[in-house]
């Protein structure tokens, strides 16, 4: 029974993957964007690191860190708008009368799209950096652990996208929430600058927030390996449980709210 239940989500994962293959041209656009980012930031970081290392980061390490955070950032399948629209128009009803969990349905779709893009980004970014820098501060073990950490990071991000999408149960407009959220990822998420560069108070604050576990933590695992994985992975799982539990509960409340708005 549990296998059959799991199978439906695996099929959703698989169908989304096949469906995404229809948009291969989008990948080219994304790669160009990604390549441009790496090119521009290489000048910035070369200037910043011209006198040596900062907090254990060299120029090469910084470029790989940036490639990893951007690979995850650009991979995220943005679904909160579609979800909010489904709630506002009542189309969510067509999901609710099917024998699956809407949350897991969206998760399977999100993960399928995001993982494909993440692996493509990692491959593309790694080739570019390896060709231009001739150095790669990563090992196969780091890579495997980094993938696990990235998947968990993407899962935490999913809970926030779901939360933003679900806000449509209570708010008519939710684009501001996404704007604020993405700015948190840019800053305390460690997209451009590693958290480790921050002053102590901000570093401590970021440790408590979920955002660094989406980008900074997986990127550090790719670079630093087992020790970093042992330190951050349990905290990532903790955030998945906390935020996953919260969206689960709020969704139940939200669907009752749909009952009030519905018709």
């Amino acid at each position: 029974m549990a296998m059959k239940s799991l199978k439906k989500y695996l099929t959703i994962f698989q169908i989304t993957f096949v469906n995404d293959l229809m948009y291969t041209r989008n990948f080219i656009g994304q790669f160009m964007f990604f390549g441009l980012f790496l090119f521009v930031y290489s000048f910035l970081w070369r200037a910043v690191f011209k006198d040596g290392q900062i907090e254990g980061f060299s120029f090469v390490k910084m470029m790989w860190y940036f490639m990893f955070t951007e690979s995850i950032m650009l991979a995220k399948f943005v679904f909160h708008r579609e979800m909010a629209q489904d709630i506002k128009t009542g189309d969510i009803a067509y999901h609710l009368n099917k024998p699956y969990s809407y949350m897991l349905f969206m998760y399977a779709k999100y993960m399928s799209s995001s993982l494909v893009r993440m692996f493509m980004n990692l491959l593309f970014g790694s080739v570019i950096l390896f060709v231009t820098l001739h150095e790669a501060p990563i090992t196969p073990v780091n890579l495997i652990l980094g993938v696990f950490s990235s998947i968990t990071g993407l899962t935490i991000n999913f809970t926030f996208y779901f939360l933003i999408g679900m806000s449509a149960f209570w708010f008519e407009e939710n684009t501001a929430f996404h704007f604020i959220y993405s700015k948190f990822l840019f800053t305390v998420g460690g997209l451009f600058i590693p958290i480790q560069f921050f002053p102590d108070w901000l570093k401590q604050l970021s440790d408590k927030l979920p955002f660094m576990y989406i980008l900074n933590a997986p990127a550090k695992v790719y670079i630093e390996g087992v020790d970093e994985f042992i330190r951050v992975f349990p905290l990532q799982l903790l955030h998945v449980c906390i935020w996953g539990g919260l969206i689960g509960m709020l969704f139940i409340v939200g669907t009752k709210k749909l009952a009030i708005n519905g018709g």
């Binding site: 199978k7 439906k8 169908i15 024998p99």
Partner: peptide, 20 residues
């Protein structure tokens, strides 16, 4: 309830799994 870019058979297959 069909997947727009995929042939109908894929949607049938998905529904079969959804309904176990």
């Amino acid at each position: 309830q069909m997947w727009f870019h995929l042939p109908p058979e894929d949607s049938f297959h998905l529904m079969a799994d959804i309904y176990e």
